[in-house]
Design a protein around this nucleic acid. Structure first.
Lengths: 151, 151
DNA sequence: AAGGTATCTAGTGTATAAAATGCATCTACG
DNA sequence: CGTAGATGCATTTTATACACTAGATACCTT
């Protein structure tokens, strides 16, 4: 298995940049689309409130990480996730999975045995959220030097 | 100023859905693009680590909210932000702004007076991060019922 | 073959450490 | 006195470490 920074070709970097540009353009488009619905002026307070609401699901530790793990790695069982999310305690993982289930991002699936196994899977909503966040992760990989640009 | 849920037409809802689908496809594309660089197999652990790193900046309370505020509302001063981020204490805002500055997302600009004023502004990196997160916010607006679907 | 030990599963219980919040206060300026 | 931009400190909330449970299988010894 490869590990650490990877080399990326000029051609592929351009592809990534293009993708990032598209998403950025899209964000702008969505923003203007929504703001158009305000008859009078752009209601900054309301927009900020919406954003705060949107992020409230994510903005406690480990929630994004759990989402990313299931998005990248697919359905996983409890201890598999614990292995992937290095440093998380089983107590915390248990609690956070519960809140993710309550928020409709994750589904808890019991496969009856013996042995009984439990797997966690993203709901449709969770997959959408993961997909929408993944360009951000892609950009941060470059910003954090996880991926080398071309020489 | 309009406030509360807004009405959105069928046509515009379809536009948003199409945008979301496109971005979702894009996320998948970026993902496979990056994974292609692993010679052997898809290194799930490394991918998850990268995602954890990417989110580590965001996954403490208020960081995303500060980012969104500056992205949506433009440059703001301390007490303006406090007004927009309802419920944040000045203690917490102060601390969080400091970490945002340390993470390179936000710039602290002192305008010398008198009276001396301090404004906070997104760096280029912060604007990029905000842009990449805004489609997520747009989607969550719909999911959270901030925008009504067509009748 | 019986009994003991070990392991793997998906978690809980509990004490402690770290983070966020409320509220009071400070400084510099007009 | 009021405003802007904070800071100090006590309390509450959240996260962590670490030990432990329960049901099942598997291996090891006498």
């Amino acid at each position: 298995m490869a590990s650490g920074p990877l080399r990326i070709s000029k051609r592929d970097l351009r592809r990534v940049e293009k993708s990032v540009d598209e998403v950025m353009g899209l964000g702008k488009e969505i923003r203007t689309l929504f703001s158009r619905y305000n008859d009078e002026e752009y209601d900054v307070g309301w927009e900020v409130d919406s954003a705060v609401d949107a992020f409230s699901v994510l903005s406690s530790r480990w929630t994004t990480e759990i989402l990313a793990t299931l998005y990248i790695a697919g359905d996983r069982r409890f201890n598999e996730m614990r292995g992937l999310l290095r440093g998380i305690s089983s107590r915390t993982l248990s609690d956070k999975l519960t809140t993710c289930v309550e928020n409709g991002l994750v589904e808890r699936i019991v496969e009856d045995g013996p042995p009984v196994r439990v797997k966690y899977s993203l709901t449709v909503h969770g997959r959408r959220a993961g997909a929408l966040l993944s360009p951000f992760v892609g950009y941060m990989k470059i910003y954090n030097g996880k991926i080398d640009g071309p020489a």
